[in-house]
Design a protein around this nucleic acid. Structure first.
Lengths: 356, 356
DNA sequence: ATGAAAGCGCTAACAG
DNA sequence: CTGTTAGCGCTTTCAT
């Protein structure tokens, strides 16, 4: 089927011949075996360089070696949140000479299982699952197969999956406390996909903060969303149309917050004078909006790195120990909130301040 | 090396046995050969389903079949521009059942050659090169090898590389003409990496527009950049410090434009009242800044799609014809420019207008 | 220490 | 139409 002439590629046999050794020896040199005489090793290395030998990963992994590639499943690409995590993964992978196979599930739970099946059939040495929608469908199998994997941002309901997660509950809790401290009482919440544990945790944090402050939970102030901008726009529009409209809105993601921004502008509400807004994630764009978005920071890049490190360690020396790392979230105060009927709360100067 | 037990995976031999046929027949069924009796085909399919057979891509491609994976080389991930292109690529790939292998060169020209060498050694059926920095080092070889590839966003200096590109010159030209029409005479330019042809084209468009309007080209108004925000910030800061500071700035990318925004705010300049700003790309964030960024739109997503389509066609039925598709750019007028000493130029209402 | 040889799972002739 | 078989390039025993 493939039109190109693979015969022109140089293989270990060519190298062996050129170096005057058996091709098993070449394989040994490539794989850094200890017991090869320096003399032969050098001859082989020279031949490899001279001939421009490049290893064929497929053959290597078929024959039982490792493939040197890690599979990554993400719901989609091109959104800030995922981009940051991928950056972290990519950095760690590159540092360890691993390659990346990227799969987008396009938020189709059924695709997940399919991809997992393919990827674990020799193509990859391990799997990174970001925001899986339907992990129960295959996590058991992976675990049984002892196939290395790490789940990012999904507080699993099992106790055998290595996991990287941020403290979503605390992050949301603190955000709401901050809003309440500013005097807000009617706080709207544009929630995330209820299938995702992180969305639920954020909702719980919201509720708990209200409760701890003696505020009543009003279901009318909570709109379901999906972390995306258009949905958040629609949700916020409904919230702003309420007779007793919220004076502050907490969005389950920065992208949602941008949708809330849009809705506020369309409703003629000024931020933060007429409505305070807080996001979640702290993606790079959050600092480029106007006013700059106050948000709950997740260390996305670092989460990607750590997940990868965890996976690579498990691949290279399997311990069987199930680790779970929780990252702290941090409230990043910028310019999108202010005390109810008060002055801007931002302590910052510069861009945000000057532009008001 | 790999700890998991691959023997538990079901192979075509298992399927063959279960279906009572030779394993070549199973292969034929998998590859949709015409000459297989419906009866046997059905038995094979049933056996595959019953046993949960999943093809091993490595073996398949080693044996001469296609790997079903496309390699993509990008300078980095997580920036809006690249994310959009990847989205397009991903969509087209998914529609055609191809998988994606993603490589980040981290802007190291030397890594490019290395990755290309690895990827063309059986791992992939074709290559997509986005913004290559050092293509001359390997494009010849790829072409000679007849290895399918498509270059995105790099007006090649060769005539044998299939290419997807936007009309950078015209885009920049029109942006400057627009600024001049608004009355601006001192127009600064925060340029892109001079190694990239697109950066040069944009600079040329800038110069030509000036020339056509009888304006003198002032080298002091052009700052070199690298398409990134921090560099653009520094560049714009210098521009704003000029005795005869520019009243408008054209940034070679939207990300650069954000850096210019930062610099303007820090310098206490209002956008667009004190300085007009135009970007290039129209990444999603461009509409989320304040004021919303006027910019030159490249159809990033579509460019990714088309590049992929072109590559897949060449892989599936090699024609040897070198195609080159140029996409039109479009000036998207938002709220970051206004006539010199005049009123806002934006025709839009809603978010932008209401927020001023 | 190193060569010989047996596959890994699959595709692609080649027979029949 | 279908079974047999020879590899694809490499890792990994098993001898030596």
């Amino acid at each position: 089927m493939s039109s190109r002439d693979r015969r022109q590629d140089v293989t270990i046999k060519d190298v062996a011949q050129a170096a005057g050794v058996s091709y098993a020896t070449v394989s040994r040199v490539i794989n850094n075996y200890k017991h090869v005489t320096p003399d032969k090793r050098e001859r082989v290395v020279n031949a490899m360089i001279r001939l421009g030998y490049v290893v064929n990963q497929q053959a290597r992994s078929l024959a039982g070696g490792h493939s040197g590639v890690i599979g990554l499943l993400v719901p989609d690409v091109g959104n800030g949140y995922i981009g940051e995590v991928i950056r972290g993964i990519d950095a760690e992978l590159a540092a360890n000479q691993y390659d990346l196979m990227l799969y987008t599930t396009h938020r189709h739970p059924s695709k997940e299982s399919m991809y997992v099946a393919t990827l674990t059939r020799g193509m990859t040495d391990g799997l990174l699952l970001l925001l899986p929608l339907n992990p129960s469908a295959y996590l058991d199998a992976l675990h049984q197969k002892q196939f290395p994997y790490v789940v990012i941002d999904h507080q699993g309901f099992d106790d055998f999956s290595p996991t990287i997660i941020a403290r979503n509950f605390v992050g949301a809790y603190n955000a709401i406390r901050y809003l309440i401290d500013l005097g807000h009482r009617r706080i709207g919440f544009v929630a995330g996909t209820p299938e995702l544990a992180s969305a639920i945790e954020r909702l719980n944090g919201y509720k708990q903060a209200l409760r701890d402050c003696g505020l009543e939970f009003d279901p009318a102030l909570v709109e379901n969303g999906d972390f995306q901008q258009p949905t958040a726009y629609a949700a916020a529009t409904r919230l702003f149309a309420l007779a007793d409209r919220p004076t502050a809105i907490f969005a389950a993601s920065d992208i949602s917050a941008f949708g809330v921004y849009d809705a506020a502008y369309m409703a003629g509400l000024r931020i933060p004078q007429d409505v305070s807004i807080i996001g979640f994630d702290d993606i790079p764009q959050a600092a480029n909006t106007h006013p700059r978005l106050t948000t709950v920071r997740q260390p996305l890049y670092e989460m990607g790195r750590q997940a990868t490190r965890m996976l690579l360690e498990e691949i290279e020396c399997p311990s069987g120990v199930v680790r779970r790392i929780e990252f702290d979230t941090e409230l990043i105060i910028r310019d999108s909130c202010q005390p109810l009927n008060g002055l801007p709360s931002s302590q910052t100067v510069g861009r945000g301040g000057a532009s008001v």
